[in-house]
Structure formats: structure tokens, C-alpha cells
Simulated assay, not measured.
Amino acid sequence: MTQNGQKTDLRNNWSLEEIKAIYYKPVLELIVEAATVHKQYQATGEVQVCTLLSVKTGGCPEDCSYCPQAARYHTGVDVHKLLSKDQVLTSAQRAKEGGSTRFCMGAAWREIRDNRDFDQVLEMVKGVNELGLEVCCTLGMLNEYQAQRLKEAGLYAYNHNLDTSEEHYDKIITTRTYNDRLDTLEHVREAGISVCSGGIIGLGETDEDRIGMLHTLSTLPQHPESVPVNALVPVKGTPLAEQPRVSVWEMVRMIATARILMPQAMVRLSAGREQMSVTEQALCFLAGANSIFTGEKLLTTPNPDFDTDKAMFELLGLQPRQSFKEVAAETC
């Protein structure tokens, strides 16, 4: 870290050994360092509020071991076809009124197909964009042409998580490869869309796997603008249903390390927040988290609602981040 109040350098050449040295620091020392970096690059006390809606639920052909939407698992998730544009815009308007500035639409697809459903999603993107919200999608794998069509429709961000390390990946998913994930991120970046990519902890991985995933993200040619850190929410019927709950200290360690490695990124405290107390969430904000999902569900798993989060923001003195802040800064 640089001295005399100067900013920590932005880097894309982190070594595994350097990341290990950060990750394994005593946790209080790690939090202090992350908080210092966070203050250098971000407006402290400001948190981006996002809402995630499942626009097409269940029936996915993939075998992601954590996912209740995989068709091969019996999880009790009802399959729903693609929502209408009007249904989505109603939800987006409600999210905006609840304080969200980013609205993300998720579809349980392995990849985007060039068909009527994709055309419908493009219309949804246009509509949500017109509401003044940052619009994000997570639709599975995509190619260069599809990324460009989404960009032209007004898509602001695309989420495609790495989930875990390359070494642990085939123990969690076998229906696509790690390189498939990286290729999608490259197509998103080339189209000029903001990249949202992080992972899930609690999948039976080791600390070395967590470090490996952070290494992959932090050594991309350009850091993701958004890095979600999810704690597994075990779902009955999935292969990972019996996994133990991730502790707050594991979340703090991941968030703090991500903050130090990728100072300009929005580090999102994502899935698993429903099981966390306000005190535990406050520790994550102190460690550098500055984005959350709000609303009753994250696709199909429980999540704190708008009123609960509003009360937490008031208690902790947090302010919602405005929409399109990066764009506004670039045009000043």
C-alpha cells in the first residue's frame, strides 16, 4: 500500500502468493487494510441497491450442484415460462420506488438462443432502461453478436459468475467449462457492457480455491465493475443441500481481499444475507462491501425485503448510491 495518503495502485498482475499473503492476514488487520483501500476509491457509507427478478424460472438443463432451478433435481421449484414485458416493468417500477437503482433480470437458461424469447428480453431491457434504472441481465452463456444486441438495447451490466476456482469447478458443474465462462465475460467486455462476475463460497471448496477464484478475477485484463460474493444457501434436493452455513468471518475475508485486489469494483454482499444479522452485515460493509440485492427473493432463495434493508441503512447511516454514477463521473 502506498504511503502519504496516495491511492493504492490498481493492478492486474497479482500473483497467487501475494493474494495468499493478503487473504491469510489476521482478520482485524485485513478489515483495516480493506477499509483504507475502500476509502481511497469509494464513497464510504454509500451502497448500491439492486433488485434481482427471475424472468424465466426452473427447467434449466445444467447440473450446477447448488442450483434449485436445475431440471434434474427435485427441489420443489415450479417451472415458469418467460414473464411478459409488462410484468417485468411493473416489478422494475416497484423496485425503483423501493430505492433500487439497478434492476437485474435472470433467466434459467444454459445459453442465450436467437429466438422470440431473446427478442422479448431485449424489449424488457429497453423498457427498464427507460425507467432510469441500470439494467443488468444474467442469461447464461452468450456470443459476440448477442452481447452486441444487448448493448444496443441499453443493457448496462451483464452478470456471469465464475462460481469457484478453475480447479474446483468440475466438482460443481460438468455441463459447461471454466473457459466457457471466461469466453462469455470476454464477449461482454468487448461489447462495452459492464462486467459483473464473482462467485459462491460454501461449495465444499478450500481456502486455496477461494484464493484461486479471486486471482482469476483480479488478473483479468480489466477488473469486473461488480464482484458479487455469495454465501451458499443450501436447498433441499440439490447435491449441496447438507453443506454447513458459511461463517461471517469467511464472508469478511473474501470481501476484504476482493476490495484490496479490485479497489474500483462494487463488491456485492449477495446471497446468504437473509441468514446474517445486521451486525454481521455491518462487518461486511466495513470490510469493503458496497452493494446489495434487496427484495424478498434472489431468483428463488429468500432475501431481506425493502423495509428491512431501509431500517438497516438508517441504523448504520448508509446512503443508496445513485444510478449511472460511473457514467456521470466520466462525463464531468
Rank of each mutant, 00 (worst) to 15 (best):
Q3F: 13
S15C: 03
E17W: 02
K20M: 02
Y23S: 02
K25N: 05
V27M: 11
V27I: 15
A43S: 15
T44F: 10
K56Q: 14
C64G: 05
S65V: 00
D86E: 15
Q87W: 01
S91L: 11
E97T: 12
G99R: 08
T101R: 14
F103P: 13
D114C: 09
L122I: 10
E130V: 05
L133D: 13
L133R: 10
M141K: 11
M141F: 12
E144H: 11
A157Q: 14
H160F: 08
L162E: 03
S165W: 00
E166H: 01
D170Q: 14
R181N: 02
R181I: 03
H187W: 09
R189N: 05
E190A: 14
G199T: 08
I201V: 15
L203P: 02
E205H: 07
G212T: 00
M213F: 03
S218R: 10
P224T: 11
A241M: 12
R245W: 04
R253N: 05
A256G: 09
A258I: 12
M262F: 14
V267Y: 07
V267C: 08
S270Y: 04
S277M: 02
T279G: 06
A287F: 10
A289K: 07
N290V: 12
I292Q: 05
G295R: 04
N303Q: 09
N303M: 01
T308L: 00
